[in-house]
Design a protein around this nucleic acid. Sequence first.
DNA 1: AGGTATTGTTCCATTATTCGGAACTGAATT
DNA 2: AATTCAGTTCCGAATAATGGAACAATACCT
Lengths: 277, 277
Amino acid sequence: MLPFLSRADEMMNANGDGMAQQARETGTLGKLMVLLDLVTHADAPLRFTDILSLAGQPRGTLHRQLSHLVEEGLLELDGDGRYAPGLRLLDFAARSWARNEFRLIAEPHLVDLQQATGETVHLGVLRGQSIIYLDKVEGRQPVRMYSQIGNASPCYCTGVGKAALSLLPAESLVDLLAGVNFTRFTAATHASPASLLAEIREIADQGYAFDREEHEAGIRCVAAPIWSEDRTFLGGVSITGPAYRLSMELLREWVVPVQRAAGSIMEGMRIRLGPRR
Amino acid sequence: MLPFLSRADEMMNANGDGMAQQARETGTLGKLMVLLDLVTHADAPLRFTDILSLAGQPRGTLHRQLSHLVEEGLLELDGDGRYAPGLRLLDFAARSWARNEFRLIAEPHLVDLQQATGETVHLGVLRGQSIIYLDKVEGRQPVRMYSQIGNASPCYCTGVGKAALSLLPAESLVDLLAGVNFTRFTAATHASPASLLAEIREIADQGYAFDREEHEAGIRCVAAPIWSEDRTFLGGVSITGPAYRLSMELLREWVVPVQRAAGSIMEGMRIRLGPRR
DNA sequence: AGGTATTGTTCCATTATTCGGAACTGAATT
DNA sequence: AATTCAGTTCCGAATAATGGAACAATACCT
């Protein structure tokens, strides 16, 4: 569904001649990742033939590639010949999450913010054209975790996403949006780059962003951007909740606390990263 | 730390001659996975040179391999030249977790068991020589999630691990244990295959396993095994908690509920998988 | 049942990618 | 300025991936 880090940004450059296209693939690995993407994005485990038609590769080739992925534990093949994501992915992810510096630094500030407002707090970063949620703090959590963490969400209709975009220089922003597929999730979702760009300019001035039920009907949020001096990471914190409880007035009251949390996180990052450079 | 799915099981077979060794590598992918393992297992982000010495590969080669991993989002390279696990791993994992059939089937039974006992319930499966925790249900959870989920833990000193091992035919069990490195976590940890084998035989008879502070001092658990007719998946459910609260008597009382939960999960799997074969 | 279409697996000469030594750049150190 | 150390680029040689076709093993249909 979500195209994630698309390496294929510069594929359609302006010239029409038959020049050798820019180096754009990661060789063998790139092809295997496409397959992993296919399987992990599928709603149900896929059979060999399903993948064959989706991947458009010769059978022999595909068969070997899948075998390699299975042998490495990245995919699993059940007794009925259906391919599902492998559990080794969980092991990798658990490790990368547990040790993630940014998350570790942010965590206490997220908890503070949650306690101050009583609503759900998210931490997300921009990767490619998607926001990946790195952490989530809920009150007495009725819902299961992992529900949001790790999920890639669109950048053009989430509070954290728009906050992150507002930090990009105009040129990169346009480049990035050129590759985005504007899916209309609700009536309020931006349907084109034009209207989005206008809002983003506003967000850049104000220093905070709202999500007015743009991604999911009945869900609103306020978000503040997080950046580093060299723009190597961009992200945001947000407070999210049901529209019936979070009036726009209330969200406006929370602008200051969210911005303060974002500020504290940036401060923490500066202390951690500053001395090195 | 944990060697995970070691493909290299049959490397040291009995013969001493120079015959071509069994096919054992996954080509390009296998080499890249070794690197991913290195980085995700490290305590802190690694610099190029660190990886160079750990991986023992020519510089040019290593450089290209790491570049590919970074380009695919499996690794991230920060401004200081340090490699950390990439966030794309999180995205993959979130998906594979959310859609995992076994977990979805087991979930309600885990919740029931948690409510019946008030203690933490785990669901784990055996992959290679490790137990991977697929789910965890706590009471009003004071600790963060992801803490355990996805983590690979040793099979020889966890309740779920020993329960899973007890289902293996004698031969496979010996093979598997031959590759295990017996780390002594506490005074109660099995230090050799011999004593472990004895206990596992007992567990196979009884149909349940205890962890008597073998993995972590002060932590005990009861676990019951889960299997399928064709032995394609082996795992277990467990109730875990602090030793001061969970006396051995209490654990013995919980044998029945844990076994019942395991039974219900197997039942659920049979309904789901049965009709197909 | 028998025949046929479908699905999955193996083989091997060809082709493309990876390999890895060496030469190169740039920064830190003396 | 000279010297080490860390990281990057280059290119012929070695190796692994490719994909067509032949081969199993099932499911599907009269």
